[in-house]
């Protein structure tokens, strides 16, 4: 037993491969990457929404469906989806320790993020290509 691989691993090696979430620091790192990407995307998102205020439906449809605006909106939504999925997972892991409740909430998080993201992406694609 003394020669098992685990015993020969450095702490860094253990963190990289295992850790309690079995994913090491990956979620932490991806949270940072989506945060950095989120800064310019959030600014662009705010500018787009602000410029659409007070416009009628036809104008909003036309602008949201134009390629550059649609691409920025899609990037914002998809980036923020991954970011908020990791973030909510972290909140659940912090406060819920009962295994069943924890698992249910983690699954609910995935369902919620998937549904909201898919709906938003579908709407933008329909505005871009749709009838």
């Amino acid at each position: 037993m003394t020669e098992s691989p685990a015993r020969r691993m450095t702490p860094l090696r253990r963190v990289r491969g295992l850790g309690s979430a079995h994913s090491g620091t990956r979620d932490f790192w991806h949270q940072r990457v989506t945060s950095v990407a989120g800064i310019p995307l959030t600014i662009a998102f705010i500018v787009i929404v602000a410029s659409l205020l007070g416009r009628n439906h036809a104008a909003v449809v036309q602008i949201l469906g134009s390629p550059l605006v649609a691409i920025i909106m899609l990037l914002f939504i998809i980036n923020m989806a991954y970011h908020m999925w990791i973030g909510m997972q972290e909140i659940v892991l912090d406060y819920f320790h009962d295994e069943y409740i924890k698992l249910s909430l983690l699954v609910a998080n995935t369902f919620f993020v998937f549904a909201v993201t898919f709906a938003s992406v579908f709407a933008i694609l329909k505005l871009s290509f749709g009838v």
């Binding site: 989806a81 973030g87 938003s120 709407a123 505005l127």
Partner: peptide
């Protein structure tokens, strides 16, 4: 962070409404 999480519902509603029609 938690409020924005649910706030994304509002964004989805806006986009779906725009796609659905006047």
């Amino acid at each position: 962070g938690g409020a924005l999480y649910y706030g994304m519902l509002l964004l989805a509603w806006w986009l779906i409404a725009a796609a659905a029609g006047p």
